[in-house]
Write a protein that binds this DNA or RNA. Structure first.
Lengths: 198, 198
DNA sequence: ACGCTATGTAAGCACGTGCTTACACTTGGA
DNA sequence: TCCAAGTGTAAGCACGTGCTTACATAGCGT
């Protein structure tokens, strides 16, 4: 009753969003190559031909997913807390994570084609640009890249490879060690939030 | 005469070695998925059916490549110099590099199947075990994993993604920044070798 | 009411992949 | 000399993939 919202059975916008959401989760779980367009369409509850109608190609869809999800984290976090926020987000990614999973998707897709690497580079550029504001050194760009590399390397080892003891380590402990060492490079980084005070 | 070197036209050992060498270079260049068995056999100058006769499957071949090449670096380098040696090796990988390229192969193959991730984990375990000897803290295993993660993250950003300014940065400068920060975690790490004295 | 466009659907094409099979040639021992 | 095992070769199978095409249907403007 009462369909104030048109509740249309045929809604291109809703279909696009469903495809984007399904693609985001599947790319994060399996990476670009192992997530097939059939799986994505199935999870979205949509015919797979529509994926190509609305996005043109699988690669273009991957680019949109990374761009959309990556921007969320960047827009909602202050520079000095970005590293810890992104790190903690990555450390929780095993469980159902509500937030951004574009870094997972990127990490699981490194073998992909050049377009995939390009999409990842764009995402990395945005992160690094923010991190670079935390240093006044001449080589702050390089310093930011090195810190970003660490973030991604930790994600790679922990969530993709499952290397122990890193994979089961306490996020607070990891944050303490990483942020302490990273402050050697970016003097403007915030100290880690103390574990469970209050 | 001289059965010591039979110089055989049909030599299973030589064929095996040719396949291993070709696979090592192609996996390093393209990663596991994008290096096809046809390409590997062609570079080895060998019929591709022999690849399956001698190694059973592409995955098994990947495992042998990673195991063989990884051990070389580990056996020829002292623990306190391992990080710098591996880092410098990775930083040179753009050019023709003589030494080990198993880390490249691993980095370009993260999206692959579980067996591929397992082969990478075995390699990572060996590196981390050596690095862990450089600390006396209780959490030295975690500290070693974090340093190893940084090494791989830098390789990912520099050689796979091509992120600037990291991709074009001077290896000496990178070593200085990384080793300085990493010594916060592993107190036994050697200081970076001074750039080009003598 | 009607027709045109937007949206959804089913089927399949073209291609590359890992892997297998059936066969030919070489080699070395008896 | 001769056969069996070892080694090399050509062809192709079976399958999954991204993507396309030809068609059905809904929904809005007129």
């Amino acid at each position: 009753m009462a369909e104030i919202q048109p509740k249309r059975t045929r809604d291109a916008q809703a279909t696009r969003r469903a495809l984007l959401d399904a693609a985001a989760s599947l790319f994060a779980e399996r990476g670009f190559e192992r997530a097939t367009v059939r799986d994505i369409a199935a999870r979205a509850g949509v015919n797979q031909a529509l994926l190509f109608r609305y996005f043109g190609s699988k690669k273009a869809l991957f680019g949109e997913v990374l761009a959309r999800n990556g921007r969320e984290q960047l827009e909602t976090t202050a520079p000095e807390g970005l590293l810890e926020a992104a790190l903690r987000g990555m450390l929780l990614s095993d469980d159902a994570r509500r937030g951004d999973r574009s870094l997972d998707a990127f990490l699981r897709s490194t073998g992909g084609s050049d377009e995939v690497a390009t999409a990842g580079r764009l995402l990395g550029d945005e992160y690094a640009r923010v991190l670079a504001t935390l240093s006044n050194q001449d080589d702050k760009g390089l310093r930011a890249d090195l810190v970003l590399s660490w973030l991604l390397g930790i994600g790679l080892m922990r969530v993709v490879v499952g290397k122990e003891p890193l994979a089961s380590a306490d996020p607070d402990e990891i944050c303490g060690l990483v942020l302490g060492a990273a402050r050697t490079l970016l003097e403007g980084l915030a100290a880690p939030v103390p574990p469970s005070s209050s």
